[in-house]
Amino acid sequence: MKKIEKEKLLKHLEGKGDLVRLDEARQDPLSATKSSHLPREELLLLFRLNGDKGVEIRVPEGKGGKILFGVPPCEARAVDLLDLTFLKDRIDPYYERKRRENVLFVLACNKPRSTCFCTSFGYGPFSGKYGDVFMVDIGDNLLVDPVTEKGSKALEGLELEEATPSDLEKMESLKRSAEGAITTVNIEGISEKLKKMFLDEIWADLAFKCVNCGACTYVCPTCYCFDIQDVERTNWGYRERVWDSCMFPIYSLETSGHNPRPTGVERMRNRIMHKFSYYPELYGEYGCVGCGRCIRACPVNFDIREALETLKEVEVAA
């Protein structure tokens, strides 16, 4: 690993793109990392109706990449999980462009919060494999380590010092204390178990306190569901996608009036299944990074850690 003064690095990055600082304030409740790839509102196309001459469709041009400085590992991992949906099968060009252009400077998480449970997912606050550059704040300096080619390029032209053994020792000690502050939820086997639990009665109990607002899904760095809507003006308009939430009844309400997920019970089941059963089945990865944002944002203290513990306790016929 190399090291550099934080101010030097920031000065170097200024002007190389839209610099977004995530390192100073604990970015709560919304994940700026998610919003930088999947904004809450995004223009898909503009159209102009030219009477008999038909319709003119214009695709908006991108604005150029952002440098996200201080992304916590959990959020960088969440972007990797979004890739599985947006870059597989048919590539989503709006997402792909931002993914290609944005540079993620990941900062190891020295002070995990009481709601963090990232270590449940096979990584931790000091995992260095996410984003483009991995950084550790050791007090006087930042340790930096490029993860991708894009990351190496972003560091080009900087004079980096070699990290000393005492720097690395400092990092190790920070890592130990951070990891020690996190409570791991043992979720081994949960995805296989959930497959057999679709019709279980536990969902009604679990969903009882949930009021079906969209807070958890909007703050979640891995939730990506969106709605597509047209906005009409005189002879022109636009089509945009906006964040949507599987917790809302109209999310799945059909024009006929039929709703396959008519109550909060089915919606809660789908949300948990999506993250802990469907995502693993499709991609071999959980759709949750254990950041705890949903726990902090929930107006009624629905705690996903507690829900996972409850689900684990349920006895399921083989």
Binding site: T85, F86, D89, R90, D92, F198, Y224, C225, F226, D227, I228, R241, D244, C246, Y251, S252, L253, E254, T255, P260, N270, M273, H274, S277, Y278, Y279, E281, L282
Partner: peptide
Amino acid sequence: LEKRMKCGIGKCGRCNIGPKYICK
């Protein structure tokens, strides 16, 4: 099958039955 759909390419989320998307 039919379900409420938006994107039609398995991204927007809503038409899943288990891990499968009706649209895709």
